[in-house]
Design a binder for these strands. Structure first.
Lengths: 187, 187
DNA sequence: GCCAAAAGCTAATATGATTAGCCAATCGAT
DNA sequence: ATCGATTGGCTAATCATATTAGCTTTTGGC
């Protein structure tokens, strides 16, 4: 019986991929073990349990989202940066609904939690978008929360298929970006 | 053994209340049965299972949210209506996080699903807010989605404790309402 | 009062997470 | 090269929870 050669990173990556495929709620330890060619209890040598796995998937997702948004914003400013960031974020969530779902309702346990760092990086990327606008010092936090609200709200509603009615979603998304741009400019 | 006198509505109401108390993820059939003074299998005489229960809780939550937002909007227009609706929605989600969580990612099975009707009523209430603004016919759907995105995004992020950093949340919320109001006015 | 339906119950089954404890593969130091 | 400790995998067992089967008692309409 040769070893499978797993480590926490591999397990988490496979878990995230599987969550994207079948949905976070249908990600079971058994299914993940099967995917990795290993028996269920073996997973516990690499992650502490389902909670821990979920937390690690969340950290991975936040980190990847931060990368995606961060690089989308590179070299752009103002409306361009806003649109690029929004698109990057939405694309990430739609491409990886399972791992993004893992981030919802999970809090970092402490400042040394990798999730805290990833979360911070994502916020930095959002903050970079705001630098292209003339925002009063006192309003930056509010604007940051607004951006997060918009991005998170739109992505999760769409991922949950919560927009059933007629109008085209891409159009709505573009409209939303315009809306935010106007608001930030006029703020 | 006298009967407990349950019916689907009672079971669903108790389930929603319990979800609010302990969190939707910790709502188990056993816990609910205990709360109702009955053994677990008895619940299956009133709801078809956990999925069905969740779906019914979601319908209840949407219906209540529609009532709350609908009555908040009554007799108000424009910015007042927007602010009242936003506050009512947020208050509802914060007061009933468990049942609201039940609505996420659940789709009505058909047009006769009670959830569909409740969902429609909530949208009507949001639509009423928009009537106080001068919005081009073609933009109404987009604006509606924007409102839903904002309300849902803010409420869920806050409910999940996703706003950890410094600035005051109520202030951010007020700022967000201003932001939306300006945007809708200038649209 | 009688009877069908409804509402409870106990017991059984299934699935999934987790733990205990065993054993083989690997790795670092000699 | 090899010894010994560590590690990563396994099987078997336990526990929690959902769900189903099938029995029994209440209850509401006649």
């Amino acid at each position: 019986m040769p070893r499978a050669g797993l480590d926490p990173a591999t397990v988490v990556a496979a878990g995230a991929a599987l969550a994207d495929e079948v949905g976070l709620d249908r990600l079971t330890m058994g299914l993940l073990a099967g995917r990795l060619g290993v028996r269920t209890p073996s997973l516990y040598k690499h992650v502490a349990g389902q909670d821990d796995l979920n937390r690690r998937i969340a950290a991975l997702a936040l980190s990847e989202a931060a990368d995606a948004v961060g690089s989308a914003v590179q070299g752009r400013a103002g409306r361009d940066a806003l649109a690029a960031a929004a698109r990057a974020f939405r694309a990430f969530v739609l491409a990886h609904p399972g791992r993004y779902a893992a981030t919802i309702g999970v809090e970092p346990t402490g400042p040394d939690d990798p999730m805290a760092a990833a979360s911070r990086r994502l916020l930095e990327a959002f903050l970079a978008v705001l630098r292209g606008y003339r925002i009063a010092e006192a309003d930056v936090d509010h604007a940051l929360r607004m951006l997060r609200t918009l991005f998170h709200g739109f992505a999760t509603l769409q991922a949950a298929d919560g927009f059933q009615w007629s109008a085209d979603i891409d159009e709505s998304f573009a409209w939303l970006i315009d809306f935010a741009d106007r608001g930030l400019r006029a703020g």
